[in-house]
């Protein structure tokens, strides 16, 4: 072994470019998380609807966009929608005419599919009795959703949401295939210029790691703040979605919910 495989000078010189790449990654992530979540709500309502047609449509959406690899979704949107002539002249071309639009569409759809299931699982975990108690108090369905179901669902689903966001961030490293110069693309570019196989990739990896762990810490703090009422574990409601890998029974339930890894 010849010591560190990292060329420190190169690392320092390429840091500004890598940070620009990181900024792009953060943008891509933030936009897709936002749109994906916004999309997940109506799809989740359709999925939970008693009407057979919307429920079936929503389920098909989830199966397709969750089951297909992100890379294929990117290709599909980028190469596929560009082929539709009707789109070329329509207002949606702003979206599908640019690499950015395509990337955000593909990633948002993927995230929405995962979030639909997480949201559904969390809403179903809200105890029936708590909802009935709100109904008995004469609270309207809309207010029950906003003030009772959602606050509880967020608590039940937070860990699954965190896992999804973390693996989603890592998954965005493929957007370079539609010509977006995100962090991974910048690192790849530096490799192609310098043929240093370690320095740029390891630096980019370190930045991803920092980003992911920052997000993780943010979620942990959020979760701790939400759980401030849960000091007595015995009487707290059963957190069905909570990810505790050391608890076999919960592990099984997580498996059923089938979020992303863990």
């Amino acid at each position: 072994m010849t010591g560190l495989p990292i060329d420190l000078t190169l690392a320092r010189d390429s840091l500004p470019a890598l940070l620009v790449g990181l900024r792009t990654t953060v943008f891509v992530v933030a936009l897709s998380l936002l749109f994906g979540l916004a999309l997940a709500f109506p799809i989740c309502f359709a999925r939970m609807s008693k009407l057979r047609f919307p429920a079936l449509m929503a389920e098909t959406f989830v199966v397709f966009f969750r089951g297909a690899p992100v890379l294929i979704l990117l290709y599909l949107v980028y190469y596929g929608f560009g082929q539709i002539d009707a789109l070329r002249n329509g207002p949606l071309w702003i979206l599908f005419g640019s690499a950015w639009g395509c990337a955000i569409v593909a990633l948002s759809l993927n995230h929405a599919a995962y979030m639909t299931e997480i949201l559904r699982g969390s809403l179903l975990a809200v105890p029936r009795g708590i909802v009935e108690a709100s109904e008995a108090l004469g609270v309207s369905q809309r207010n029950i959703f906003l003030h009772v179901k959602m606050p509880l669902a967020i608590r039940y689903g937070l860990k699954a949401y965190q896992n999804e966001v973390v693996s989603f961030i890592k998954g965005t490293a493929v957007v370079s295939v539609v010509t977006i110069t995100d962090l991974a693309a910048v690192a790849n570019g530096i490799f192609e210029e310098t043929y240093d196989p370690f320095t740029p990739i390891l630096c980019a990896a370190a930045l991803y790691w920092a980003f992911v762990n920052l997000v993780r810490i943010g979620f942990d703090l959020w979760g701790r703040w939400l759980d401030r009422h849960k000091m007595d574990r015995e009487r707290a409601p059963v957190p069905v979605l909570q990810n505790v890998p050391t608890r076999g029974r919960l592990l099984r339930q997580i498996g059923r919910v089938r979020g992303r890894v863990l």
């Binding site: 108690a133 509880l152 009422h229």
Partner: peptide, 22 residues
């Protein structure tokens, strides 16, 4: 008004907030 067998209090709200919600 109704009082349930298992009370069904809102676990994310304290006693005061439970009463204030409706």
């Amino acid at each position: 008004g109704m009082v349930f067998q298992h009370f069904n209090l809102f676990p994310h709200l304290n006693a005061l907030e439970n009463c204030m919600l409706a």
